[in-house]
Every structure is written in C-alpha cells, then in structure tokens.
Design a protein around this nucleic acid. Structure first.
Length: 938
RNA sequence: GGCGAUGUGGUGAAAUUGGUAGACACGCUACUUUGAGGUGGUAGUGCCGCUUUAGGUAUGGGAGUUCGAAUCUCCCCAUCGUCACCA
C-alpha cells in the first residue's frame, strides 16, 4: 500500500491493470440500458497529440465512466481516420509507403492516449486504411451504386425496383432524383433497348454515378477537392490555388436527401450554430421558376428562379451570369465589343477580388430584350457577375424597388424603379423589400396581399406552362473521386460496349476488399493520370478490364465508422444486426466544430441511406453532439533592447522606457509569466552568457498574447511533459477545470498546480504522508459531514447531466475543503467521495478504493452515490434583507415561517428600523427561502 | 452584408426557473510551518473612499420591463465563428 501520492507509479499500475483485466470491454447486454459515447476519431499526424487534442476525449471519458457507474452498458471506442494527404505527401518525398508512416503514427497516438487513462475498449479499435475496414466502405459504395432515389416513397431503393417501373411505365412520369436533362422514355422504348443500352440508361439514376462535373481542381496537389476543402479560392490543406475544371468524376447524389437532412436537424440535440451552418449549407429556398420569351428568338426562353414572384410587375431588367451558355447567341453585334471586354474582365478577377468588391456594381448590356409574360413589357437583358452560373438557372429578374442589389444595378445603368406595393417607402433612395401592403401597378394582382398574390401568380403561370412553384437548394451533389493513392479504391472496373463506350461495373461482393496495388512512386503518371495508373498493366479486373484509377475522398471512411465499432471484428457484415439493434445510435458525440458541414453532413447522408436499405436502426446517427472549443496557444515574449552594445532584455513592466523588439520565448521555460533566465541563456544560442536582464522585483516578467498553437511561436505544450510532471489525473482535472467545454480558450499551464494540490488534498483525507500511514476510521458520519457529502452528490450529478464538466471540479474542491475542515476521515463518507471523483481522476480513485478495503478494480462498475435530500434539510434560512433591491443585512428565520411571519419579524427588527429611519415601507416582498425586499417610496 | 455565438476582477471562471454578483482556482500581499520543496497552514484581495467605522459604485455602452436584472425586451459597440453577390 502506497501512503504517498506517487502518481507515476499509481497511474502506470492501474493502466496495466485495466489492460490486463479488460476492465472496459463492452458487450451486447440486453439486461442493461446502453450508452454510446463517441469521440471524433483523429487523423494520426506525425506531430502526436498536443494539450488541445485530449480536451474532448477527457470529457467523453468522464461521461463514459459516469454512465458505467449509473448502471449503463457503455460503448466507448477509439480508432483512426488513417487515409489522408499528409502520409501521401510524405511518401512522395521519401518513397516510404504511407502504410508504414501511418502505422508508426498510430502507435505513438495509442501510447499517448493510454497514458491519459482513457477507458476505451481497445478491442474495437478501427483504422479506415485497414483492408478489413475499407472492405465495408467499398461495400457501402456498392449499395449506393445499386440504388436510386424514389421520390414517391421518399427513400432510396434498389435499382431492381426501378427496372420494373421502367419496364411497365417508362420514365415519363417517374419521380426519381436525377439530372434535369435525362431523356424521358416510354416503357416501350425501354423494353426495346438492348442490355447494354438499358445499363447505360440506368446510370442516370444511381446514387453513386459518373458525371462530367465542374470540379475544384488543385494542380499543386494533383487532385480534386470538395467545396468544403476550399477556402477563399485556395486549398484548405497547403493553401494552393484551386481552379474550376470539367472532369469525369464519381459523384454522390446527396441532394436527394436535402430535405430529410434539413428535417432531421429538428430531432437532434446539437448546437444552434451548428444546425444553422448545416441549414445554410443545404440552402433551401422556396420560389418559382418563370420563363421569359426572348425578342426575336422563338425557340428559346430564359428561365429565372425567384423567391418573390409577387414582385414580377416590378421587373425592369434581366441579368444573366457571364458564363451563361446562351451569351454568344444573345449578344447583338453593336454590343459585341463591350460584352467581350466585360467577360474578359470577369475572368481575370480572382475569387478574392470578387469577394472584396461586393459593393461595386458591374455589368454590360447585351442589346437583347426579353418579354415579361405578365405585362408583355420589353425588358433589357444584361450580363453581370453578381449572378452566379452555378446557382438556380444562372439568370435573375431585376426588381429594383424590392432588392437592394437590383436597386444599385438599376441606379448605375439608369433603369426605371417601378413601385409595386403601396407600403414601399423611399424607393428613390433605397430598395424596400417589404411584403406588407397591397399591390399597385401590378395587373392581375392589384389590390391583393402577399400570400394571395403569390398563389394567384403561380397558378396563372402553371396554367399557361410558363412557370411553376419550385424548391431550390444551394447544396450540390458531392464529388467522390480523388486522384490520390492513399485512399479506398473504388470497387469498379470499366468494360467497353460493342460501340466502344466504357461502362462502369461493380466487382463481385465476394471479391471485396479490393486492395490498393503496389506502385513505384506516389505521383501522377507521366500522362497526368492518377497514381493508380502506374499499376495499370497488372491492376485489372480478371486480368482484362481496367479498374477505376481514382480513390475515394477522405470523408468516405469516416461517414459510417461508428457502426464498425459496434462489431469491429465481423467479417460477414459491417456490423451484425444484433449489435446494430442494441447500440442503435451514438448517444453523445464529441468533436471539433470544423466538421460542421463536411463530416457531419456526409455521415448523416450515409446513415439515412443505410436506414432506407434497412441496415441500421436510426434515421439520425448522433442524438447529442458537443463541439469542444479549440484550445489556442498562449505565447510568451521577452523584450530585447534595440541598439544596445550588449545584448539586453528588459522585463515586461519596464519595456516602455526602452526601444524594444518583442521575441517569442518557449513557454516551457516560463512559469507564471516569470522567465527562467538561466534556462533561457542555456537553451538559446543567440543569447550570449553575458546577456543583461533588467528585472522587476528581482524577476524577469514576460509579456503574453493568445495565438494559434504552433511550433514557430514556441507555445506548444505537450501532454506527455505535463503527465510526467503532475500525472494524468491532474491533467484531466485541470483541462476540465479550465472552463466550459464548448468555449474557445487559450492554454495556460500557470494554474495547473491548483488541480494538483486538490488531488493531494484528497489524498491527505486518506493518508498521513509524514507518518506514512492510513488515517481512515470506521466511525459513523455526523449530520454535518453528510450534508457536505450530499450537497456534492447532488451537484456533481446535476452538472454531469448537463455536461457542465468544469463546475463539477469546483464542487469536488469545495467538498474536499469542507471535509478537510471537519477533519473527516470516515470510510463511509470517503467511499462516496471517491466514487464522485473517479470519472475525473480514475487512477487515484482506484488506489483509494483499494485503501478503503474494496476489491481492486471494482470501482469502474460500482454504483454511483445516491443523493438523499433528508441530509440537506435546514431548520433556519438566512434571509438577505434588501431595501429597494439593495441588500443591507441578513436575518435568520425558521425555514417553515410563513411570509407574513417573516415580514412581521423583519419589520420588528432593530437594525431594519434603523435603515427605515422612521419612514414607512410602501411594500414588503417576501419570497420564502429566497429574499426579503422592502420597498420604500420615492 | 446575412446567420450564429460571446462580452463579468490582475487571470481562468461561477451564479441551473429574474432573488446576497465574483463561488472554485490561479496570481498577489502579510504572517506562519518545514532540514528542504512548484510543501502545509492562517488572514487579506472587484473598484473608489475611510485611521477605523460607515458608505458609494460595479457584469461592453445606452434605454426599458420589474419590488428586484449578469439573467428578460429594444438600440448601439466590440470580439469570435460561419457562409459569403444564393436571386
């Protein structure tokens, strides 16, 4: 038995114990309620973990341990999102296979995670780059390829059902999600097709499909990027320029799920900001498509999408995107030069220019006119780059009285600004987008209100087949191909038809996994094909047909991994039905907010798809989600005096008296902002031994600033160092004590000693370290001790239930301080305290549990203390007595006294009378067991 | 510009349905314990004011609702996140 708090020994011993005894192994246990608590699994980078990474893992581990104590069967797994660019970049530089780098990094991560004492069930570890795992990623791709979206049933179905519909009814009235330009055919036409022809036609409807899409191409990285991997026209990783390029790519029809993705947000407990981000990303708008005839061209009409069809009588111009495909045809000869100049100019502008010049108006007249279908007026047709080719129809009707951007445009080109609502104000000065009032100058809707007008117009347009109500989404289908090596191969090969057209076919399910071939270099081929093209000679299906050379994007493996944890070793299914039906969905998911629109949206998409096919139990995979705040760095600075003969540094408080340059200094040689001068001299070869330091009160004080945590700023703090110095339990307690989990906060090691001292204080309730002996006693607890204990039990439970991890630490500190004051060393009290502490400081808890005479290791599955309100009953309550809301004194009264009794007693009190100073109170408010407020007249 | 969030001591923060603002911790000051300690203990610490006692004032700023506002409403300012000309 250790009577000193030797955390290094203690932590190592218990980590070994847990591993040996598989203490945290989870299993399907129908006799217990389940709780699934999941961390977003990390990409194993070469740098290892810094103090910011474990924040979320600590919180989730506390919940896992807490729920175990409450009698839940807890699934708390960890794994690695191990496909990705950095390992591949490294492979390009060194020739080392990415699998080797990845393996090394994972080994390091596991070691670091184990040092933190997390209660993961390591038997369920997954790695997305493991063929046994990506076999099932490929399998899901195959299901997507074999499915179409039936809008009638509002779900995905096997293409077999589509085939029978086509054979009996054709596709003319078919409600399926596909591109607008897919040719509609009759049943006869379908039945007349040959097998290959039918196969080619079906490709239009599959949820995984090949498409010539405009993609974000990054030449430096040699690959396509998703929209959320591009920031301000540069690649998120590396910051390289990204250009638009048309390429034949695999895509996923996520837009089929747009509305369900939107509706599903209502049933999950996620933060408003996160839900809002997803809503914005999906970007649903309800409006109307309207066709405008073109003057002088009879076979074409320009279609616009508007959310305010009620303003159509206010149209005074129309604008096309400069990239619109009819621009050449619609430009009149006399405008040709101007239009060409404008298009050249817009092309020259980078993404960043466009963003920064939002306010300026630009555009050019084409010389053409369109006809407003409602009033047959001629409307001039312009080009302007504020209209985006990629959204809606690439054409916009301009209503200057109701839209500020249109108003600016009209002013700039001196176009009319017709008023359309009697409630519009000052439309000569600015646009007024009100929906109030009655319509004027508006033909068939004159005198109507907004709702009636909109319905009338849509009906009018639909009757004449020149428009219809429509729901528009901003979200695009997701490009699924990456021209990289280190990703999942797509389980597809290409077989030519009789006419030589290449059609994609799936390999057999029994042939999974399709493993990555070996290649000589991890670069594109000489002809610019993806790296897998280097294996082209041998990498063929049945030695004959080329496999797909692109690999899957990073998000493929992470879009379903929570199911693999449920049954990680299963070779016959991604998870057994039994496991899926028991664990169902994630009860608590913790991770960074940077995945708001990427991972979390794709995962919800795949989950809904798997639900449609009946493979999983829940429509939403994560019921509760918490985004832990990023931990920022806290940099320290020293101030070097400029232009001095000798190298001189001046302390922070005196720096204003000198001309100084601020320099970053390693935060690990600074404590409480005091610099370790000797260590500073030793560790920096640019600081000579005779350097001068101008001190304040004998100390060198450093300045500080909050910055990103990075090596170049010397502010990276490594958890391994802190664990060596204070122990994992201290680090766990301290990271939680820093503040609310969701909040962004700078890392500051300064006050970690407070958490360490707290744990030592707990230890001293059990042991006299000086005398090297236990001080535990068996005596029964006093009412006072029970009150202290049960106050803590209630608050710890309440706070954990609302994920307030920081206040739990305060509560435990108060409890320990109070028990210390009471000199309480009673086993019955301390046993409960250890249980409360165990989720936060599990190693120490195990050790103290043993000291209490309990069975080794049994604390992990013990029972959480039960709060008993009887111990908190008070006979008296200390009433704060306030005058006009300002508290002046407190008076104790019986807790059961009625408000009238309290009021009488208060007014009879001598001190109260003194404060009243002879005046009569106009009112006395008594809130039982809260406050007394005496209201004095003015 | 839209949307979302945040703003409380020297610092991290607490205040769960409006009811004693600053719990808990760091830091700091003084005293004390120990052979020694990134030790233990005691007292103090929002700001202004006072020898002490009072007292005044205070949750980004301004207005409002209320007996009573950090908390609710409106306006403004600042910071962070996010989308960014979305028709």
């Amino acid at each position: 038995m250790r009577s000193e708090y030797q955390f290094r020994e203690i932590e190592k011993a218990w980590q070994g114990f847990w591993e040996q005894n598989q203490t945290f192994k989870a299993q399907v246990n129908p006799n217990k309620p389940k709780y699934y608590v999941l961390d977003m699994f990390p990409y194993p980078s070469g740098a290892g973990l810094h103090v910011g990474h474990p924040l979320g893992y600590i919180a989730s581990d506390i919940m896992a341990r807490y729920k175990r104590l409450q009698g839940y069967e807890v699934l708390h797994p960890m794994g690695f999102d191990s496909f990705g660019l950095p390992a591949e970049q490294y492979a390009i530089q060194t020739g080392q296979h990415p699998a080797i780098t990845t393996e090394q990094n994972i080994t390091r991560y596991i070691e670091q995670l184990k040092n933190m004492g997390f209660s993961f069930d390591w038997t369920r570890e997954v790695r997305t780059s493991d063929p046994a795992y990506y076999k099932w990623t490929q399998w899901i791709f195959m299901q997507l390829f074999n499915s179409w979206y039936n809008q009638e049933a509002d779900k995905a179905e096997s293409v077999d059902t589509l085939k029978s519909i086509l054979a009996s009814k054709g596709s003319i009235g078919l409600k399926a999600v596909c591109e607008d330009d897919v040719e509609r055919i009759s049943a006869d036409a379908w039945n007349a097709m040959g097998e290959e022809e039918q196969y080619a036609y079906l490709l239009n409807f599959r949820l995984a499909y090949l498409d010539d899409s405009v993609v974000n191409w990054c030449p430096q990285l040699g690959t396509v990027l998703a929209n959320d991997e591009v920031k301000d026209g540069l690649s998120e990783r590396g910051g390289y320029p990204v250009e638009q390029k048309k390429m034949r790519q695999w895509s996923m029809r996520i837009t089929a799920y747009a509305d369900r993705l939107l509706r599903g947000l209502e049933e999950v407990d996620w933060s408003d900001s996160l839900k809002e981000q997803q809503r914005n990303w999906i970007g649903k708008s309800i409006g109307t498509d309207v066709e405008f005839a073109i003057e002088g061209i009879s076979d074409k009409k320009i279609k616009v999408f508007t959310t305010r069809v009620d303003t159509i009588y206010g149209v005074s111009f129309m604008v096309l995107a400069p990239e619109h495909e009819w621009v050449a045809e619609l430009t009149k000869p006399e405008q040709q030069a101007d239009v060409d100049a404008y298009i050249t100019w817009t092309k020259s502008r980078s993404e960043l220019d466009r963003v920064s010049e939002v306010k300026t108006v630009s555009g050019v007249f084409t010389g053409s006119y369109v006809i407003n279908p409602l009033n047959n007026e001629r409307v001039p047709l312009f080009l302007a780059d504020y209209v985006l080719a990629g959204y809606g129809t690439g054409a916009v009707m301009g209503v200057p009285s109701g839209d500020q951007r249109d108003w600016n445009f009209a002013k700039h080109f001196d176009l009319p600004i017709p008023a359309i609502l009697d409630a519009q104000k000052d439309i000569e000065k600015q646009a007024d987008n009100t929906k109030e009032g009655k319509y004027i100058n508006s033909g068939i809707i004159n005198g109507m209100g907004y709702k009636e007008a909109t319905n009338t117009l849509i009906q009018w347009l639909e009757e004449r087949e020149i428009g219809k109500g429509k729901v528009q989404y901003r979200m695009r289908n997701a490009v699924f191909s990456r021209q990289r090596y280190w990703g999942e191969p797509v389980p597809v090969y290409f077989k030519p038809t009789a006419s030589g057209q290449l059609l994609p076919y799936l390999i057999q399910e029994s042939e999974l996994p399709l493993e990555l071939p070996k290649i000589d270099k991890y670069l594109p081929t000489e002809t610019g094909e993806p790296p897998l093209g280097r294996a082209a000679d041998s990498w063929k299906y049945q030695g004959q047909y080329d496999y797909e050379w692109s690999t899957m994007p990073g998000w493929a493996g992470s879009s379903w991994y929570w199911y693999r944890y449920m049954d990680a070793q299963n070779d016959a299914a991604f998870a057994s039905a039994e496991a899926v039906n028991y664990w169902k969905a994630v009860d608590l998911y913790i991770g960074g907010s940077e995945h708001a629109t990427g991972h979390l949206l794709y995962s919800r998409f795949w989950n809904k798809f798997l639900k449609d096919l009946g493979y999983v139990a829940e429509e939403e995979f994560a019921k509760k989600l918490i985004n832990q705040g990023m931990i920022q760095g806290r940099s320290n600075f020293v101030y070097r005096v400029k232009n001095s003969d000798q190298v001189t540094f001046v302390s922070h408080g005196l720096k204003d008296q000198y001309d100084v340059a601020a320099l970053h200094v390693d935060v690990n040689i600074v404590e409480n902002d005091f610099l370790d001068v000797e260590e500073f001299k030793r560790s920096r070869n640019d600081v000579p031994a005779d350097a001068q330091f101008i001190l304040e009160d004998g100390k060198y004080v450093c300045g500080w600033e909050v910055e990103k945590m990075s090596k170049s700023k010397f502010n990276v703090v490594n958890p391994d160092d802190l664990i060596a110095k204070y122990g994992a339990d201290t680090l766990r307690v301290y990271e939680m004590f820093l503040g609310p989990l969701e909040q962004f906060k700078p890392w500051n090691t300064n006050s970690i000693s407070g958490s360490h001292n707290f744990l030592r204080k707990v230890w001293r309730l059990f042991f006299d370290e000086q005398a090297q002996k236990s001080v535990l006693v068996d005596a029964p607890a006093t009412p006072e001790e029970l009150k202290v204990l049960h106050t803590a039990i209630r608050k710890v439970q309440d706070d954990l239930d609302r994920y307030s991890f920081n206040t739990v630490v305060s509560t435990l500190m108060i409890c320990v301080n109070d028990l210390g004051q009471l000199k309480c060393h009673k086993k019955s009290v301390l046993r409960e305290l250890v249980l409360l502490l165990s989720p936060y400081a599990p190693h120490m808890a195990e050790e103290l549990w043993l000291a209490l005479g309990e069975e080794a290791g049994s604390i992990s599955h013990a029972k959480f203390p039960v709060f008993n309100p009887e111990f908190l009953v008070e006979n008296e309550f200390n009433y704060p007595i306030s005058f006009n809301g300002k508290v002046k004194l407190t008076l104790a009264f019986s807790a059961t006294a009625s408000p009238a009794e309290v009021e009488a007693a208060v007014l009879a009190n001598e001190q109260v009378q003194k404060h009243l100073d002879g005046k009569a109170p106009s009112k006395v408010i008594v809130v039982p067991k809260r406050i007394v407020n005496i209201v004095l007249g003015k």
